[in-house]
Measured scan of single mutants.
Amino acid sequence: MTYKLILNGKTLKGETTTEAVDAATAEKIFKQYANDNGVDGEWTYDDATKTFTVTE
């Protein structure tokens, strides 16, 4: 399945997608991606749209 991440960081904003077997796997990938890019904030997930959002 395709999952989407919306980044609302102070210095980085944008979107990315990943292919993952489930939401938990996608979350791990996205949290590593956000960490690698210096984004740390409040996480939400919308199962209907398979979208994670992180807001600093």
Rank of each mutant, 00 (worst) to 15 (best):
T51R: 03
N37L: 15
T17I: 08
K13D: 05
N37P: 01
V39T: 04
M1W: 14
A26R: 00
K4S: 07
Y45F: 07
D47H: 11
D22E: 04
L5I: 03
Y3A: 01
I6K: 07
E56W: 14
N37F: 14
A34H: 01
W43Q: 01
E42D: 13
L7T: 05
A26H: 00
L12R: 09
T18A: 11
Y45Q: 01
I29F: 12
T16N: 05
E56M: 08
A20Q: 05
T44R: 08
T49A: 06
Y3P: 00
N8I: 13
D47W: 08
L5H: 00
G9V: 11
A34T: 06
L5M: 05
V39D: 02
D46A: 05
F52N: 00
T55S: 07
A34P: 01
A48T: 12
E42T: 14
K28L: 13
Y33I: 08
N8E: 11
A20L: 02
E15K: 07
G38E: 06
T17Q: 11
F30E: 00
Y45T: 01
Y33R: 03
K10N: 12
K31Q: 08
E42K: 10
A20I: 02
E27W: 13
E19L: 14
T53H: 06
T53W: 11
I6M: 06
I6S: 04
A24T: 09
L7Q: 03
V54G: 01
T44V: 11
I29S: 05
T18H: 06
E56A: 09
K4A: 05
F52V: 01
D47E: 15
N8A: 09
V21Q: 10
T53A: 05
L5Y: 02
M1T: 15
E56K: 04
G38H: 10
W43N: 00
F30D: 00
L7M: 13
N35M: 13
T44E: 09
Q32V: 10
E56F: 09
F52W: 07
E15Y: 12
K28A: 13
A26D: 00
N8K: 10
W43D: 00
D47K: 09
F30S: 01
L12N: 06
V39W: 13
D22Y: 04
E19G: 06
K28G: 08
T51F: 03
A20W: 02
L5P: 00
Q32R: 12
K28F: 10
G38Q: 08
A20V: 05
L7W: 15
T18S: 06
T53D: 03
A23S: 08
T25W: 07
D47N: 09
G38A: 07
T17W: 15
I29P: 01
T2P: 06
D47F: 09
T51H: 02
E42V: 15
D46T: 05
G14W: 15
D22W: 03
A24L: 13
